[in-house]
């Protein structure tokens, strides 16, 4: 899970490793994921999102498809 300056640099990084580029996430989307995952982590009442919750969170941010499906086993 890495930062990149541009999609072109992601493509170059992937090409160098012989892998296809994955879906790209904007910084505003990443912030929402960070808040959702960790906003209550220091509190007694917190839990890691369940697979169903994860899928709902991803979909709310426009992150859809097998890559973002925590139960998918078909993504290559």
């Amino acid at each position: 899970m890495l930062f990149f300056r541009s999609e072109e640099l992601i493509a170059a990084w992937c090409q160098a490793r012989g892998v296809s580029p994955r879906p790209v996430v904007r910084m505003d989307q990443l912030w929402q994921l960070a808040v959702t995952w960790y906003g209550t982590r220091l509190e007694p009442v917190s839990h890691r999102p369940t697979p169903a919750e994860m899928r709902s969170i991803f979909e709310s941010l426009g992150l859809e498809g097998d890559f973002w499906d925590p139960r998918a086993d078909s993504f290559e």
Partner: peptide
């Protein structure tokens, strides 16, 4: 991770300042 350009990103209580930087994850959620 490709160009090694440094990222210095201020984050306030509402999130990071507007930025064109991107996040990429190689491994699927499952």
């Amino acid at each position: 991770d490709q160009s090694l350009e440094p990222l210095d990103l201020p984050v306030d209580l509402n999130g990071p300042e507007p930025s064109a930087w991107l996040f990429h994850c190689l491994v699927p959620a499952a």
